[in-house]
């Protein structure tokens, strides 16, 4: 049963997507797997004129694509970087991304980029600053912006509101949407000892534009958002809980470390179908967790012709995904 709350922007529900990663390029181009849509890490494709651009154009011919960025740094005290936005808009136009997403975080200040999704203090000052930046970004991009809640490992005493109240107010005041990463809610709830369901309950379902799901690593003292494994059952149940409030939303499975073969990633994404139902339906994990990994395209490829020449392939930089 779905509580069909339409999203505010009429973003189409493409279904169950997978993050496009270079280790799967050859498989996707050769096999045309029946994937509903792909999400791309925007920064990987912004200026490349090489193989990744070629692959993107081919994939865009066959599948819906949505841009997911990691360097918007909307929470940084730095001003909006319009040079970056120009590239982003050109890419969004090129692949016809109906909306764009990034993270409610900052990645650096004074023009630095530490390539991580850093926590912001949830204060009135931060809120006003980010609302202003979000409006500038949406005006420039001319398409909806949905911001993902990130996994965090630190909180600030200077915060005057909860993360969910901050996100809710940001959406109310800026008209942006939320990419609800259910795994990130679970991770942060564990790390900061709050109720994941309370977070979800506070968010207006009509402002949720998309879902993310991923695996993580529980270190005991804290959880790291590593995107290196299957989604755990508790996160699936949170997805079911959240989905019952929103109904159809694009749902995407992220897998960025120890990436297995494409079918395994895709099957994990399709598991989400089973959780778009009421609690009680038995869910059987069909995936062999010992399955072999994807071909190691991310190891420098070597083609020997003679001793004077070699071919090289850029390794996959999972770190570009700023988990």
């Amino acid at each position: 049963m779905e509580a069909m709350t339409p999203n505010k922007w009429n973003i189409p529900d493409f279904g169950f997507g997978v993050g496009l990663r270079s280790v799967h390029y050859d498989y996707i181009l050769e096999n045309n797997p029946k994937v509903d849509w792909f999400e791309i890490i925007s920064e990987t494709y912004l200026e490349s004129g090489g193989h990744v651009r070629y692959v993107l154009d081919k994939v865009a011919e066959r599948y819906p694509i949505v841009l997911h960025g990691v360097s918007l740094s909307i929470g940084s005290s730095d001003p909006v970087n319009f040079e970056y936005l120009k590239l982003l808009k050109a890419l969004a136009d090129r692949v016809k991304s109906p909306y764009i997403s990034d993270h409610l975080c900052w990645t650096g200040v004074n023009a630095h980029n530490v390539h991580d999704l850093l926590p912001i203090p949830y204060t009135e000052q931060s809120l006003n600053h980010i609302v202003n930046k979000v409006k500038q970004v949406m005006d420039f991009m001319e398409r909806p912006l949905v911001l993902e809640n990130v996994s965090t490992y630190a909180q600030f005493a200077s915060s005057s509101m909860t993360e969910w109240d901050f996100h809710a107010r940001l959406m109310e005041e800026s008209q942006c949407g939320m990419l609800m990463d259910v795994n990130n809610i679970y991770v942060s709830a564990y790390n900061h000892d709050f109720s994941a369901k309370e977070f979800i309950d506070r968010i207006d379902p009509s402002l949720v534009g998309q879902y993310h799901l991923a695996g993580h690593t529980n270190k005991g003292t804290h959880i790291l958002d590593t995107h290196n494994d299957h989604v755990i059952d508790a996160v699936w149940e949170l997805y079911r809980y959240a989905f019952q409030r929103t109904g159809g939303r694009n749902t995407l499975l992220e897998w960025d470390e120890d990436i297995p073969e494409f079918d395994i990633v895709h099957q994990e994404a399709l598991k989400a179908k089973r959780y778009r139902s009421e609690k009680g339906e038995q869910v059987i994990t069909p995936i062999d967790r010992t399955s072999k990994h994807a071909p190691k395209m991310h190891v420098t490829a070597v083609e020997s012709v003679d001793d004077t020449e070699r071919a090289v392939t850029r390794q996959y930089k999972s770190s570009n995904n700023a988990l």
């Binding site: 530490v114 390539h115 991580d116 850093l118 490992y153 630190a154 909180q155 600030f156 005493a157 790390n191 900061h192 000892d193 005991g220 003292t221 804290h222 790291l224 930089k317 999972s318 770190s319 570009n320 700023a322």
Partner: peptide
Amino acid sequence: VLPSKTLSPVERIAIYRRMFVLRMVDS
């Protein structure tokens, strides 16, 4: 920087510091 039930403020920020080193060196 607030402590968690299990980590001190320094330990919490250290998570970001370690990830920064890993990212830079791996890249």
